[in-house]
Design a protein around this nucleic acid. Structure first.
Lengths: 200, 200
DNA sequence: GGAGATGTAAAGTGATCGCTGTACTTCGAC
DNA sequence: GTCGAAGTACAGCGATCACTTTACATCTCC
């Protein structure tokens, strides 16, 4: 919108620009690899302004995690909220190959990555990730129940595990195949759990 | 062995001490979080000596990855090589709760973590991880075949995905439950694949 | 017992990074 | 039109980090 006009500087709305840039860079390059300098340059924001909005980089990371969750930023996981789709379609929609960024690199789940990068040095961030994963598993269980699964608890937790594995292994292997494998496996489990039950 | 005696310094065999310490610290605290200073102190080795053995930290990371693989250091994955066990037992043995370190923190797969931490800045290390994951999947496929699975390719890849997911989700959730869930799911898939019931 | 490989101690270098201080500008609201 | 909030530019600080340098000790092997 204001991209074309804002030549010399970003102008008003710095906080929003910072957060958007954080989502972009932290997710793509990692938190450690993204320095404050690179962030401010990309966001067209002065260093001073950044620190007027966020007391420290750690706090920015916290805000970044919350932003990831609140918006539809977690594109893959947003599939669960597509009300127009059937529960089954919503679940299988998770495994779309969104994990691929522009450069073709697969970066896995940004939240999981923060936990790995933090390695205990950012307890608050780690807790945020923990809570998100719990909520996500809960949503999967609910959706599994909607799909008519016989044991939605078990199926939901298994689906969460499969989805996490698909993204993690895609990253380590640098290959999207695990996402397809995950989808197939999820489909098989859904079929089994809903056998003889009208899937709607 | 020489721990009690070696008071003032480590003495001979510095390279070995460095690598052992790297395995310990890199896996527990992460590569970025482990500085050269901390490493040399723990390994009882002078900085100079470290750089006589390894040209750079990156090269040490490479050696660390190779060491992880060559020794039985990857305790979980070593289960596949227990010749005394049945193929089925070997596969289920993967999900032992070894991911828990002394402090109770779950750190997931050290190789995967390097890929996440590197975030593209260490291409050679990333390739090493990639190759390892490929080999591991291959071993799983072989073991699935040994177990008499109808479609060992499919089952092996699914098991690899489940194992990766169990470790990753355990890390993000800071809970060993996904390991148990993974074991149960692996068991169910093994049963299906070896009892004439189609997995699809 | 001497030579050469192996290892040690400790100060120092240059680069990077997160963060701050100071002084100035711009924009919107009243 | 003025005032205050919001933003900018940019130099710089202190800490950390990977890595080097210099000078010295010790073990192994012939």
């Amino acid at each position: 919108m204001s991209d074309a006009a804002g030549e010399r500087s970003g102008g008003r709305g710095a906080r929003e620009r910072i957060l958007r840039t954080a989502v972009q860079l932290f997710a793509r390059d990692g938190v450690q690899a993204t320095g404050i300098a690179k962030l401010t340059e990309t966001a067209q924001v002065s260093t001073r302004t950044l620190y007027q909005h966020f007391a420290s980089k750690d706090e920015l990371v916290r805000a970044y995690l919350e932003r990831l969750e609140s918006d539809g930023v977690l594109a893959a996981e947003a599939s669960l909220e597509q009300a127009a789709l059937s529960p089954r379609e919503r679940i299988l929609g998770l495994f779309v190959e969104v994990a691929l960024d522009a450069a073709g690199t697969i970066r896995g789940c940004p939240l999981h990555n923060v936990t790995v990068e933090a390695a205990g040095t950012m307890p608050e961030a780690t807790v945020l990730v923990e809570r998100h994963k719990q909520r996500f598993a809960k949503r999967l269980i609910e959706t599994a129940a909607e799909a008519g699964a016989q044991e939605p608890e078990v199926l939901g937790r298994r689906l969460a595990l499969i989805f996490e594995g698909a993204r993690a292994l895609s990253t380590s292997l640098n290959d999207t195949r695990p996402l397809r494998d995950g989808r197939d496996l999820a489909e098989a489990l859904l079929d089994q759990a809903t056998q003889g039950i009208s899937v709607r």
